[in-house]
């Protein structure tokens, strides 16, 4: 379990990093927290010819609150986000999801951007960002561009990020008034890849009906899955137990075509999605009502 030979660069600025990526187009891999990449290299499944270590680029880390919402630098450690008071206030869904990611040791190294760009279908953060309708800022030789999280994920471990681009910042909009969110997942052990998980955001109108809902699922598709049918089922509805159950059933039966593996059959994943969407919506509604 030793990696194949590789060339190592440790740039101090984003520009330098981009220059190295451009020079080794396709053969270079950015190294963020390394919690997925390094094990893959040790198994010799990942064999990047060039590693571009982003850990010494101070400009890439940090959390900023603004009137529009929250901006999180891609290299901000997951643990820092987990403990940040602004995040807890302005993006409670992020704060709620973070402790489910692996273990404190891993979150201390692991970065927000690293997880988002890695695009593991079982990862918590991509689903959270899809549920929050976050925007990702990418920079590359062609300049800077913003892309919605939903558009960013294009398939299994596949994103809109070009090989010569870097994900540099994540923008999370402020929570809508009278909204609530919830994150729930089922994992074999705390910190494992979830068998299924749900990130849900619900906003209420003045009558207490669901004005808008975004429900994102993890571990049941090629990437984060936006459960559109489930959201449709409750949008404009009073959030009764039956309405919520209807949305949960829609998620389980229409929004997903889950894979099976040695830990969970497709049928079991479907069952979990139904249960977890129901529980997440219940909790999100309670929180929205209490606002």
């Amino acid at each position: 379990m030793k990696p194949a030979p590789f060339e190592y660069h440790r740039p101090g600025t984003v520009e330098e990093a981009l220059a190295v990526l451009a020079r080794h187009s396709g053969d270079a891999k950015p190294l963020a927290g390394g919690q997925s990449l390094i094990p893959a290299m040790n198994f010799r499944l990942a064999r990047p010819a060039v590693l571009v270590d982003l850990n010494r680029i101070p400009a890439l880390a940090g959390i900023r609150g603004s009137a529009d919402g929250l901006r999180i630098g891609a290299m901000t450690r997951q643990r820092a986000v987990e403990r940040d008071a602004t995040v807890a206030r302005d993006a409670p869904l992020v704060a709620e999801a973070l402790p489910h990611i692996a273990h404190p040791q891993i979150r201390t190294r692991g970065t927000v951007g690293g997880s988002l760009a890695h695009a593991d279908p079982a990862a918590e953060l991509p689903a959270v960002m899809v549920a929050l309708d976050a925007t990702f800022d990418l920079v590359g030789p062609r300049g800077r561009r913003s892309i919605a999280a939903t558009e960013f994920y294009t398939g299994l471990f596949t994103t809109a990020l070009a090989p010569d681009e870097l994900l540099v910042e994540i923008a999370i909009p402020r929570p809508a008034p009278r909204s609530g969110s919830a994150f729930v997942e089922v994992a074999r052990r705390h910190g494992d890849y979830a068998l299924a998980g749900v990130a849900a955001v619900v906003a209420l109108d003045d009558a207490g009906r669901c004005r808008a809902a975004r429900i994102a699922l993890l571990s049941v598709g090629d990437g984060p899955v936006l459960a559109r049918k489930a959201a449709q089922a409750i949008t404009g509805e009073s959030l009764t137990a039956e309405a919520i159950k209807g949305a949960a059933d829609a998620a389980a039966s229409q929004d997903i075509d889950p894979p099976g593996d040695i830990h969970a059959s497709a049928a079991y994943r479907r069952q979990l999605v139904g249960v977890l969407v129901r529980r997440a919506l219940q909790r999100a509604c309670e929180r929205a009502r209490s606002h």
């Binding site: 198994f43 499944l45 890849y193 099976g260 593996d261």
Partner: peptide, 13 residues
Amino acid sequence: TIAGVGQRLLDSV
């Protein structure tokens, strides 16, 4: 190696 460590993704792939 893919058999030993890739099962989680095999179905999707």
